[in-house]
Design a protein around this nucleic acid. Structure first.
Lengths: 160, 160
DNA sequence: ACTTCACTGAACATATTGCCCAGCGAAAGA
DNA sequence: TCTTTCGCTGGGCAATATGTTCAGTGAAGT
């Protein structure tokens, strides 16, 4: 569960140069290839590294508009709403949350006008009482994990 | 910019079996290796595929709590707040938005108690007027791209 | 002192990569 | 209609990486 410094360096290296390969990593890190292999296998079976899926940019696919929608759900309709939202391709992720709304989802659309279509489709479902949408203008910090990995690796060092 | 059906199949295949390699892909897709190579190169230089970074699970790193925070910023302090938040490892992403708040960020923490520390650190900065936080309970739809890719590929087919 | 475990460094056969090429067919332009 | 361009095919080549196994070593824990 906890990762040590070498694990951290492996993840960071992998994040910076994803196509790098085990052999080259072992050279860069100054450890034996088998060690990197073993660490990687462990990180993957631990679930720390979920996979190496391609990171696709929705904007480059023609969906440059991103928005976050907060949804209020009619009591007991949660499961149905989930199933409904899972069928909408423009819903990139969905969370159930505490707080003012009951659910929060990330949407993309082809344009601001198209966002209306997407929202209509999202909220055009019986269990959804109300939706409030925030359109993303800028993304100063894109989804990142490296700082957290470094933090986790350092915490581990101090603990050991 | 627009992707065709073969591009879509390449991305989906890559998303399902990330470690697959060009040769095996060409076999699965029934096209020549050079074609897959060329398509992949094009998708990457187009920016459709940003990279193949490892997907790290914060929970497995010891950060099982996720939250979304909506921030209200003092006029003209946007840049400073951005820089501040970029230094906090637990801030996984940050967006500026329209709507009730001015910014929206995704946070992780080691526990609900630890979330308080993270939030204190996030809002402990002059330019931030107010923060409202929604803790994530479930994640019925984890960040996904395949449905959108398929949608984009189909749209392209119909256009052609 | 003994056992366990992770890491090293090496070996091997096999598979994949990056690169080249000539040929082909369809679409686009003259 | 003719010609050029472009993407795809299918093949070959050397270089490299992979998966796997092995024995040896040192450190940590019992």
């Amino acid at each position: 569960m906890a990762i040590d410094h070498l694990d951290g360096r492996i993840i960071v290296l992998l994040a910076r140069e994803p196509r790098i390969g085990v052999l080259e990593m072992s050279r860069r890190l100054g450890v034996a290839r088998g060690t990197v292999q073993a660490r990687l296998d462990r990180l993957q079976s631990n679930g720390v590294i979920r996979g190496f899926g391609p990171e696709v940019d929705p904007a480059a696919l023609g969906y440059p508009v991103t928005a976050f929608a907060t949804l209020q759900i009619r009591q007991g309709q949660g499961a149905d709403v989930r199933a409904h939202l899972a069928t909408v391709p423009e819903v990139l992720e969905l969370h159930t949350t505490t707080g003012t709304g009951d659910m929060m989802c990330r949407l993309v659309a082809r344009s601001n006008a198209d966002l209306q279509r997407v929202i209509d489709r999202v909220v055009g479902f019986d269990g959804i009482v109300r939706a409030s949408t925030a359109i993303v203008m800028e993304n100063p910090v894109p989804l990142r994990i490296i700082p957290l990995v470094e933090q986790a690796a350092e915490d581990r060092e101090r603990t050991t």
